[in-house]
Amino acid sequence: MTYVYTVIAFGLIYTMLALGLNLQMGFTGIINFGYVAFVAIGAYTSALLTVDLHWPLLAGWAAGAALAALASYPLGLLTIRLGGDYFAVVTLGFSELALLVVLNERQLTHGAIGITGIHRPFAALGPHLSAPLALLTIAALTAFTAYLIWQIGHSPLGRLLRAIQANESAAQALGKNTVGYKVLVLVVGSAIAGLAGALYAHWVQYISPDQFSPDVTFNTFIALILGGVGSLLGPVIGAFVLIFFLQGSIVLQDYVHIFSANQQSALRFMIIGLALVLLIVFRPEGIMGRMKSRRSRRSADVS
């Protein structure tokens, strides 16, 4: 049962991550390869504040989201004006830098040893009650995030973000502060990543730097691409498909002995890679896609 809870919790946390990335990449066209840095900031902030300084849990989560947002603000101001590819490279560098800081600032971050004894929500109620209640809390926060993103997607703000993605200089010519909006999107997306990171830390109860490798960023990208970039429901579907596959193939390891453990973990990523290539070739809009764009493409073909 605990294992099922963990799979669902990871699915929800990846859903939240994919939602934040979708705001950046799907709505606005910002490619952020350093996404994991903000997850790490959120996780470490909340873990350190609640474990070392005995802050209440909710305050730790809020601080995690806030600090991730705060860290992204100067980064955005300095670099968002760079073209898309350059910005992507800078963010990748930023996430490596963040990882190095976590590894080496041992006084603050406990270095490679990591942080143990992070509390789960409702830990006082005992392990049988705390797991499902913590899961419900994560589910509620994920649902709230999804609602927020949905609201943005259906508002004039979402329309403007799509316009900026389609043609930034045209948006400027119409009086829109495109740089300001891109920084805003970066900050909001980072706050979501930070919150997801904090939730993760308090679910697994132990964090160390190797949990925040660029793999997290790329898994989030995979989830988003699987589900459909720019679609509203896509991140949810994509995250769960990815997590079920990743976790399912781990379980399979116990029953199938043809490959060694190393070979199996390599095989997992080969299968994901193959699935991504097939998806991009045959269904570039993702599993959920954008219903509207498909319909209009069909009508364009007819005319």
Partner: peptide, 22 residues
Amino acid sequence: AFLRARRGIVKTFQIPHEFGGL
């Protein structure tokens, strides 16, 4: 440019810059 546009100086582009997906 965007502040000039807000003050009433609005330009169009030689090659149309429509927001294609909208």
